[in-house]
Write a protein that binds this DNA or RNA. Structure first.
Length: 552
RNA sequence: GUGCCCAUAGCUCAGUGGAUAGAGCGUCUGGUUGCGGACCAGAAGGUCGGGGGUUCGAGUCCCUCUGGGCAUGCCA
């Protein structure tokens, strides 16, 4: 199925060409992208095209004259009901009521794939997100990337991509040593043994709980073990928690990519050798440096510290080269703003090695800060200041977590107030949306009891104002999906979902299946309308990763 | 200091260079012997942080100022 906006753009393009051929418009280059705006179906129509205004100059005609020339040469299309020129030269279109009503059957035919279109069929996409090292629980800061990544993956799949979700992690290095030392200290503390808590150690209660678990399971059998043993234990336990937490909001990964594998395979050594050969790497101050200034960077970066350990940049370059070698047409990488400076070095490294980084698409989202008693504070895993995903799910539930975090545009900061989230969890848009779905299911139950079916329904009877408004909005879904993935901003989906649900509830108020004086044949048509509505509502909820309740 | 992000209704936030800037919550007024009222209909509420510019047209793009956030590691 082709997007309606694209179909409108095609028609307009053909109209301009026809007008030029007929001499109604002079010759000029037709713009690559013809703007088609979605409207609310009021005085400005369902779809509005302001192209005549921008063509006035090249056509050397008044915009209204350009609009008239386009309109006169417009090919016919079954989906257009009415067209008119308005204001200074807007082309406004209303969809055909009969065509709109017939879309009920089209939606039902699509079923669970409703709103999908296949412009990316045959392509492979990868979305890398979360990628937190196993040094603590998933917090609401990670949750933002998690929900965005998972939702984008859903949307990419809806346009035909085969999608893989990947989690990249490091279980070696300095941070994990501190994890091991922190846990060992807590374990010894719990046993009443002398201990040294590391200076940069993880201070959250979390490590006490893990230590308590170790005491319960192993007694004092580990008291003479050094930090690597504790690091391994911590890693296993924490990754178990991370997987469980993410699973609670419906997120599963296809791949867990371990940074260590890049050392084991020799990839990191090969990178350093190759960069030296190309003179993009050099020694200074006992460290190995990457000549980023050769790629537009402000200063060079360290690849291998004077201690002999590579920095995170080095394996990260090989990781992204690995992604490119796996042949993804699109590799999305979701990063918090506090990590945004790391990508330019990676991109430069990828280019230095002769690869084209253009399939890699980095999405930056701003921070989630914690608000307590009106004061904001930065979350810190080290200091133990954070709200975990588990706490949040316990308080407000999976669906509210996903909806709220997703509803903010990536560029906006989130000031997260757990008290406020709890207080507002009773009455909020999440329920407005899910309740619409519940109401559909309620109708189906009642209809089944009353023996009403939609067999032989005549959908052409669905020309009422309310049903038509809902259907117009429902048919925007493919365009919303397209726009959302083009912008890589999944919050557009939440805005749409609420609009759709509100239109549903207005419709439901007056468009009744089983009561009032609804004649039997109209009841059949309306029942089928609600079946289509349920399909669309379920589809939107599923794309957002939310559940589709039958009852609430 | 430099780079990136933000500032829109009382609060939380949407808004693709298009026409009269929207929603949720809160406030106020109404609504059901009826498919579930977790709902609906309506009202009030705005110098889109200030100033300049670009153009047929700016909340949206550019410059600048103010106020916040993040980054600016041989941490990740």
């Amino acid at each position: 199925m082709k997007l309606l906006t694209a179909q409108f753009a095609d028609l307009i393009r053909r109209a301009i060409e026809a007008a030029q051929t007929a001499g109604a418009l002079p010759a000029f280059d037709i713009p690559e992208d013809i703007p088609v705006d979605l409207k609310d179906g009021g005085a400005q129509g369902d779809y509005a095209v302001p192209v005549a205004l921008q063509l006035a100059k090249p056509a050397r005609r008044a915009p209204r004259q350009v609009a008239e020339a386009i309109m006169q040469h417009l090919p016919t299309a079954d989906f257009i009901g009415r067209a008119e020129i308005a204001g200074p030269g807007f082309l406004n279109f209303w969809l055909s009521p009969a065509w709109l009503a017939a879309q009920v059957d089209a939606i039902l035919a699509e079923g669970a794939a409703a709103g999908a279109f296949d412009i990316n069929a045959g392509k492979r996409a990868q979305v890398e997100f979360v990628s937190a090292n196993p040094s603590g629980p998933i917090t609401i800061a990670h949750t933002r990337g998690a929900v965005m990544g998972d939702t984008l993956a859903n949307l990419l799949a809806a346009t035909g991509y085969t999608v893989e979700r990947e989690y990249y992690f490091n279980n070696a290095g300095r941070q994990m040593e501190i994890v091991g030392r922190s846990l060992r200290a807590r374990y010894l503390e719990m046993l009443g043994e002398p201990f040294d808590f590391p200076e940069d150690g993880y201070r959250g209660q979390y490590f006490r709980w893990i230590a308590a678990g170790l005491v319960y399971e192993h007694g004092d059998a580990l008291k003479d073990k050094d930090w690597p043993v504790f690091k391994d234990l911590a890693e296993n336990i924490i990754f178990g928690h991370i997987r469980n937490s993410l699973r609670r909001i419906g997120i599963e990964f296809d791949n867990w990519f371990n940074e260590n594998s890049l050392y084991e395979s020799g990839a990191v050594d090969r990178l350093l050798e190759a960069l030296r050969e190309k003179d993009y790497a050099y020694d200074a101050d006992g460290a190995v440096w990457f000549r980023m200034t050769a790629f537009g960077g402000e200063k060079d970066r360290v690849l291998v510290k004077s201690t002999g350990e590579p920095t995170y940049v080095t394996p990260d370059i090989m990781y992204h080269i690995d992604k490119l070698e796996r042949g993804f047409d699109l590799a999305v990488n979701i990063l918090g703003a506090d990590h945004m400076d790391q990508y330019p070095a990676v991109a430069a490294g990828v280019r230095a090695m002769g690869y084209d980084p253009s399939p890699i698409h980095v999405i930056i989202h701003q921070a989630v800060t914690l608000v307590e008693g009106g004061a904001t504070q930065r979350m810190s895993k080290r200091k133990g200041q954070f709200v975990t995903l588990d706490e949040l799910v316990d308080e407000v539930g999976r669906d509210a977590v996903r909806y709220y975090i997703l509803a903010y545009k990536p560029d906006a900061h989130i000031n997260f107030d757990l008290e406020l989230a709890k207080a507002q969890s009773e009455e909020n848009p999440v329920y407005t949306i899910q309740y619409a779905h519940v109401r559909c299911m309620g109708v189906f139950r009642q209809a089944a009891e009353a023996g009403v079916t939609d067999a032989g329904a005549d959908v052409s009877r669905l020309t009422g104002e309310r049903e038509q408004s809902f259907l117009r909005k429902a048919l925007e879904l493919p365009q919303i999906i397209d726009f959302t993935i083009r912008q890589m901003e999944p919050h557009h989906l939440t805005t749409y979902a609420l609009d759709l649900a509100r239109l549903f509830h207005s419709t439901y108020e007056t468009v009744r299946v089983l009561h009032g004086d609804t004649p039997p044949d109209l009841a059949k048509a309306r029942l089928r309308f609600y079946k289509a509505a349920q399909v669309i509502l379920a589809r939107v909820l599923t794309l957002m990763g939310m559940t589709t309740p039958d009852r609430m």
